[in-house]
Design a protein around this nucleic acid. Structure first.
Lengths: 333, 333
DNA sequence: ATGAAAGCGCTAACAA
DNA sequence: TTGTTAGCGCTTTCAT
């Protein structure tokens, strides 16, 4: 492995000159700087990140903690961060943390590699230590937000989006509307449920709201939909409150052979690829996740470069667009 | 930040005792070891990975270089590696390298952080330097394989799978079959095309093979399908040779309003979520990607732990299963 | 504009 | 069984 010392010796200069030249320090003459760069690339010098950190420099690692990478929501986030981090010379340390002990371990490991910052979609109930460790690190929360946390957060307007989508169903004449959403332990679960409820209370339109909450998983969505459609009085419309839950619910509706939208109108959550192919197309909430993640990444890396403590008031939300397709219709008399 | 020295001082022992105790070195008495562990966790000690590496230990970072994370193929791989690496105490440094210069930069950066190993799905034509750098690193190739490379490789039986799927179409009576696949610059593109061709040469069944090759992207798949269906004599069946190309082709068929399987039988590549929802369901090749990635990860981490140079003969393939759904039918007279 | 030298926190060789 | 010590390759004062 070629070190800065090798480059220095090859040029008959000191290591500090090499270090400074490579960092484009203004104190080095442009002549020397050029010679150093040339020699470094000729010799195949690759900077040792560990030594850099040991020397006191900030690491160029950014921790990215997501609950699931096969969920298109999170895949989009990973892609956006990868792009921006690559542009800015940062590397992503990626982990899937869907369980609080795993989450804690990963936060510890990120601190261990002296990550410059951590981007996290928290689990539903992180360990106390996780929160306290995080407090000592530059970090930003994505989508979900810890209740007690005052740190920066980028997410979607969960309440407003679900409220609008539910209002849309109400405006189609539906009164018995079911909602399958995430647990209250998740900030998103809470906000989305609130949106669902607020849609009812807002209008003159009275209606019967049926709520089923549980983990945002395919399996739970499937079970919940089965349960709902086995009630003596079925709902006439179904509002979904999670991407994976939507997948599961669609599976269930297929299994049960429910006619959509004749017997049930359905509004999905998120516009994962394939949702448009379901039956005559799934009406759904489409979120500009890439935009969200990109602005989060740009903001965060910029805050990191400022060096100081990151502004903890940072907070930003985006809203969804309701994509109307064949799974919703005016209620049949 | 609490260091090993702090722990040592708190206990009145030396740093090396702490280091050894934490590494569960057999030379340390179990008494001391317990005390050290207790003190470390009490003080909130977190090992400094940079210092560890500087001291000569191997890093616990594994580079994972994928061309795309929104493609379910790669998302499955990322998930599998994340799981296994987490279990083994490794951290994943993730990057999206779909362009050879980006790829080279990422390999350099991985060497910079002294990654213990690199898992890579190479671009179609990596820079010479990329290959030469890789040669000096423990690494394994996934899915795609560099022509000149003799390193370990885990992939799918591309030739066989496409051959079988094509044979299936032939057995349904189709004779004019089109294939949309990846470029020859990709080892996978080459193997899959070979499979397509071999299906024809194998049987008595003569047929007209129409081949369209290009980047494995949604856009190309879409264009290629449009082009194919605008020919004066349309094919009666379509075989896809990439996941993203499949997506694009399905879009095109929707845009053109082609009746499937009445006017065209279609076999997709990969069983991405949603493929089953397309029309009456897409007949497709389903690959056990999670199995592939998991065995690759287990093998690789194990090879790394052996310490020595990894066995460069390692090579392993899995085969797809043809999932028959509504998009394929016996040719109509 | 450049050099010399002191760490950073750990590992490992060598002592005891 | 434990302690001492010499690096690892950088960054960063402090000299020059």
């Amino acid at each position: 492995m070629i070190t800065a010392r090798d480059v220095a010796q090859a040029l008959g200069v000191s290591v500090s000159t090499v270090g400074r030249a490579l960092a484009n320090d203004s104190r080095i003459s442009s002549q020397t700087r050029a010679r150093v760069h040339e020699a470094a690339s000729r010799l195949g010098y690759i900077e040792n990140a560990a030594a850099r950190v040991m020397g006191g420099a900030r690491s160029r690692l950014i921790g990215l903690m997501l609950p699931d990478i096969r969920n298109d929501f999170y895949a989009q986030i990973a892609e956006a961060f990868s792009t921006i981090c690559g542009l800015e010379g940062y590397q992503l340390v990626f982990s899937i943390s869907n369980e609080r002990d795993v989450e804690l371990r990963h936060v510890r490991e990120l601190i261990g590699v002296r990550a410059a910052g951590i981007v996290i979609v928290p689990t539903s109930a992180p360990r106390r230590e996780t929160a306290s460790l995080l407090r000592g690190q530059p970090h930003v929360q994505l989508l979900r937000r810890l209740p007690a946390s005052t740190s920066a957060w980028f997410g979607v307007n969960d309440e407003g989006c679900v409220r609008e989508a539910t209002s849309f169903l109400l405006s189609l004449g539906h009164r018995r509307i079911a909602y399958i959403g995430g647990p209250l332990a998740l900030s998103t679960g809470q906000a989305r449920l609130a949106g669902f409820r607020n849609a009812f209370s807002g209008k003159a339109a009275r209606g019967q709201a049926i709520e089923v909450l549980g983990p945002p998983s395919v399996e739970f969505g499937r079970e919940a939909a089965h349960r709902l459609m086995n009630r003596k009085t079925r709902p006439t419309a179904l509002m979904l409150g999670s991407v994976q839950g939507t997948r599961g619910a669609l599976e269930a509706l297929d299994e049960l052979g429910i006619a959509v939208p004749q017997d049930l109108s359905v509004v999905g959550f998120g516009d994962a690829s394939g949702f448009g192919w379901w039956r005559s197309g799934l009406t759904t909430l489409r979120f500009p996740i890439v935009d969200l993640a990109t602005s989060c990444a740009v903001w965060f890396l910029n805050a990191l470069k400022q060096g100081g403590p990151i502004a903890y008031e940072g907070q930003s939300t985006v809203s969804a667009r309701l994509v109307e397709r064949g799974s919703t219709a005016r209620i049949s008399a």
